[in-house]
Design a protein around this nucleic acid. Sequence first.
DNA 1: GTGCAGACTTGGAAAAATGTTC
DNA 2: GAACATTTTTCCAAGTCTGCAC
Length: 601
Amino acid sequence: MRVVRLLRLRAALTLLGEVPRRPASRGVPGSRRTQKGSGARWEKEKHEDGVKWRQLEHKGPYFAPPYEPLPDGVRFFYEGKPVRLSVAAEEVATFYGRMLGHEYTTKEVFRKNFFNDWRKEMAVEEREVIKSLDKCDFTEIHRYFVDKAAARKVLSREEKQKLKEEAEKLQREFGYCILDGHQEKIGNFKIEPPGLFRGRGDHPKMGMLKRRIMPEDVVINCSRDSKIPEPPAGHQWKEVRSDNTVTWLAAWTESVQNSIKYIMLNPCSKLKGETAWQKFETARRLRGFVDEIRSQYRADWKSREMKTRQRAVALYFIDKLALRAGNEKEDGEAADTVGCCSLRVEHVQLHPEADGCQHVVEFDFLGKDCIRYYNRVPVEKPVYKNLQLFMESKGPRDNLFDRLTTTSLNKHLQELMDGLTAKVFRTYNASITLQEQLRALTRAEDSIAAKILSYNRANRVVAILCNHQRATPSTFEKSMQNLQTKIQAKKEQVAEARAELRRARAEHKAQGDGKSRSVLEKKRRLLEKLQEQLAQLSVQATDKEENKQVALGTSKLNYLDPRISIAWCKRFRVPVEKIYSKTQRERFAWALAMAGEDFEF
DNA sequence: GTGCAGACTTGGAAAAATGTTC
DNA sequence: GAACATTTTTCCAAGTCTGCAC
């Protein structure tokens, strides 16, 4: 079902993609064209190459509170008998216990990894006893956490207020830093608490123990002359360094994948805002190059070199289908997912004819986060022929583009345009699509609600292009039904109001006095109001249905140049709060400061 | 080229906050 | 003002891409 829906929406998208593109109007960061008001905060500050700051001062990260042992009444059972666990073993048991209702705990890999790591935390005697997860009973632990969550929900107003104030205090104390003389918000000032690793899809490491991070694991980054953050009492930092070519404040190595995690600034900070702005400027710059790049890769489909042909076909997919680059992954370390360059023969099927089109390529693979990408696309004949060639005498597990890597692809792109990489195409195509869609869908005479539907639809076209999917919300059916009930009720009200208006009209005709006239006017206004409400409700229903399995957030936050949306709001008199929430407006402060209603991507 | 570490962006799910209805 | 629905924010996993060593 989902696949069919996406396919249909994609077909519509392809059609709209045929609309001729308007010539680029190029704006340079800081140029008059793109700016309105001073935007001074967003003038690029002159740091030499690679330097991110002159001054960085902060309080260090906030650590998860120490483990609180379970109360005596909450027991763990093994083979039906209560077993008292050591604190270390109990803590890890609670990580599993609190997840009992979750699907993860039904997965064999998760269970196996958890049990394996749990046993490492046990004392020798515990290990002697606890030998099989199937004989473990965590239900009391689970219930304890469920009750605890429920108790939090029913706290009194005062108690809730107190908790809120405590959180705010924490935010004030650890949530900000000073960067080059300005106070900036930190994105994630809390060190990740210990728990069980929740890898997505068929992740081979799911269920493994994510160790508790101690100050001794943490590297602090701050300026030499600043007040060095105090480690928690009785502890010390792994290292304190002063590296102003990076933006992170603190870092540690996570125990499951052995990768580095960072404390970084919030997206509303100047530093993050500037990089986002730069990213969109690079994508805008691509507008001026894209025609030539397209003609070049088309020419390269006929190259004598296999490597060049593969690169040209891959680039075509990246451009046309907004596929990700697809870096190589170590097998066994993560779920088996692919992007463009790592596609295997088994991920594509060639159809000489399908859906009434010639040369159809069927893609079916798991992309980032194990989200399935399924698409059937008619391609140009040389692409089709090349794919046949690339697949010749290969097994299903072989790489489709065996002569291509993301590094070589990006090296090539860099030669075509300064700063160009595979991902820029995603940004470029997402933003240009939003702009085109808004132009095609918005009508100036529409109501605000209808304009917002148009905006969401434009946003949705982009999300579908980028394959941003979500699980259907669990409450979807029910809430849809509620909405339908509401619509039905409103329809009845409208019918009733219409009848009343008819009666009032007759009454006025008969009486012809001022009183009946004012009644008539009142009835007319009522009908209008109800009709408007009905229209709004049905718009809501349409939007909801179309959005069932599409996630709009990622494209909105990462791929769509906010200046396009802001300009649209200004042009069509839609309050920007209808499009961006408070945090989103803070994140896009740079764009709000500079985009006028005539901004063009 | 290839492998790896590091730094940063992008991603959906889950939790929390807020709004609506009875 | 409780119960439920919806929206917003937080969380942290999973990508991209660069630079360096060999």
